[in-house]
Write a protein that binds this DNA or RNA. Structure first.
Length: 481
RNA sequence: GGCGGCAUAGCCAAGUGGUAAGGCAGCGGUCUGCAAAACCGUUAUUCACCAGUUCGAAUCUGGUUGCCGCCUCCA
């Protein structure tokens, strides 16, 4: 099977053909580290994490580069506000980013370069653009001349003459064209600065990605990704810089993920409705967050609200409940796997992923499989034949393999449910020992067929947000979602 | 003003030419002392609206309406 990818450049799905057989070179724009990361960062990271996992699962040798923009106006402003060093500020938020992404089970990219570690290649690239007459120097600033790059606008589908220049931004009169952008900014007093042929200064926003992607992945990338908002001007400018300098296609496939809304409203700093990853993880399991993020296609907008994330949480419970059921029946430890005999579900799942990483469809297939497995268990309650057992174990393996691509189902069911219990009990300051005691009392009443007492205890527990399951082996209690 | 996207059941959401996945919620059933969980059945003759292409369209074309994004830093 071939992977098909929607390419922003061509506006259609195309079969993925790597430059070098069996290899994928992918560059994704990472965060500007001036603040804690929010759900939007998480979506981008999770989406490309799943893409990376899938390429690896398909046997590709993947080099995945995701940068940190650690020098920028926003960082400088923030550092000044807080009265701290801009480097220290950037380091702090890089650390936070790693913490949050690790918590979300996002695997680290192969390389995570920082702009400030690549000032030399950035300067060399700017020099090349000046040599070629594509960039020009004005008072220590270097600008890119968009008029020198005929294909400017090809990614975002804009033409220079159609855009209302400076509609919302004051035009810098020193620019030849108002869409020219800074490659190098001269330093103002007190700002962090590096020496350059044009005096002290720092790189513009876009140039770092061109310089670093070339250094680690070559002049033509297989895949370049990021949030939709980066299409213009950031990625358009990267193309202009790299193709202007090297005369080769910059990236073959452009992948862009959609935005997150909060209660139907665009999530933004100015509206003050952004959710940080840390906040969400206080109330929800990281895998619930992943399942939520992956339940819509990556290019579609996704609305974050309590109901939606709550449903993702319930769905995840359902899968873990099945895994727990299987573990109890077959005494599996979490990593025991038989080879799938009949892996039709897995095949379907992979087909879904092949079609532009359709995780929403894939999750549907996962639930189909969960239902089928539960059914097999129900139908063979009393006696499980070796054939049926083999099939059930094969289903289990397939569930875990799908989970591996989605980055979920990494916990043992026991620790998953224990963790949920503890989190919820803490929030409501309920005592687990008390619940255990009440459950025992109820079991005693049930043995004596004292249904009235038993039902009364159950009712009280429901009011405490505790739900009971009377299984053949005994009563199990869980926390309601 | 320019560019682009979306509109599928009560809700969320897949589905780009062959007769509507999956989840949540609801209802009926199996199981159960009763529940819960799980499973089974059921819930869109229909995919915003109008016209067209086609043997056949949610899927293609044209138009209408509504919502949204980008064009300024943003994942």
């Amino acid at each position: 099977m071939t992977i098909r990818i929607y390419n922003t450049l061509s506006k259609r799905k195309e079969p993925f053909e790597p430059i070098e057989a069996g290899k994928v070179r992918m560059y994704v724009c990472g965060p500007t580290v001036y603040d804690s990361c929010h759900l939007g960062h998480a979506r981008s990271a999770v989406v490309f994490d799943v893409i990376a996992r899938y390429f690896k699962a398909m046997g590709f040798d993947l080099i995945y580069v995701r940068n940190f923009t650690d020098i920028d106006d926003k960082i400088i402003n923030r550092a000044n506000q807080l009265g701290v060093d801009s480097r220290a500020l950037a380091e702090k938020f890089i650390g936070e980013f790693h913490e949050d992404m690790d918590a979300l089970n996002v695997e680290r990219p192969t390389i995570e370069p920082k702009a400030t570690d690549h000032i030399d290649p950035i300067i060399r690239l700017i020099e090349k653009l000046i040599e070629k007459g594509i960039a020009y120097l004005v008072d220590g600033d270097v600008f890119y001349s968009v008029d020198q790059f005929e294909e400017y606008g090809k990614l975002s589908g804009r033409k220079l003459k159609d855009m209302e220049a400076g509609a919302r931004v004051e035009i810098d009169r020193r620019k030849h064209n108002s869409f020219d952008f800074a490659l190098w900014k001269s330093a103002k007093p007190g700002e962090p600065a590096w020496n350059s042929p044009w005096g002290k200064g720092r790189p513009g926003w876009h140039i770092e990605c061109s310089a670093m992607s070339t250094k680690y992945l070559g002049r033509t990338l297989d895949i370049h990704g990021g949030g939709k908002d980066l299409i213009f001007p950031h990625h358009e400018n990267e193309i202009a810089q790299s193709e202007g300098a090297f005369g080769k296609p910059f990236a073959r496939y452009w992948i862009h993920n959609g935005f997150i809304n909060i209660n139907q409203e665009k999530m933004s700093k100015s509206l003050g409705n952004f959710m940080t990853v840390k906040e969400i993880l206080k109330s929800y399991h990281p895998e619930s967050v992943r399942l939520f993020l992956l339940s819509n296609h990556y290019r579609s907008p996704i609305d974050f609200n309590e109901k939606a994330i709550g449903e993702a949480s319930v769905s995840l419970d359902k899968i873990y409940a099945l895994l727990e059921r299987l573990e109890e029946k077959f005494g599996l430890n979490s990593d025991s796997c038989d080879h799938p005999e009949n892996d039709t579900f897995k095949e379907k799942f992979f087909q879904a992923m092949d079609d532009d990483f359709n995780t929403a469809l894939g999750i549907g297939i996962l639930f189909d499989l969960v239902r089928n497995t539960n059914r097999l268990m129900d139908e063979n309650k009393d006696m499980i034949s070796p054939e049926i057992k083999k099939m059930i174990l094969s289903y289990r393996t397939q569930i875990l393999e799908m989970g591996d691509i989605l980055g979920i189902l990494y916990e043992s069911p026991k620790s998953y449910f224990d963790r949920k219990k503890n989190q919820s009990l803490q929030e409501t300051s309920t005592d687990a020992a008390l619940i255990e005691k009440m459950v025992k009392e109820r079991e005693k009443a049930r043995r004596q067929k004292d249904w009235a007492t038993a039902d009364q205890i159950r009712k009280t527990l429901i009011e405490m947000n505790i739900i009971l399951e009377d299984r053949p082996e005994g009563t199990v209690w869980k926390v309601c979602n």
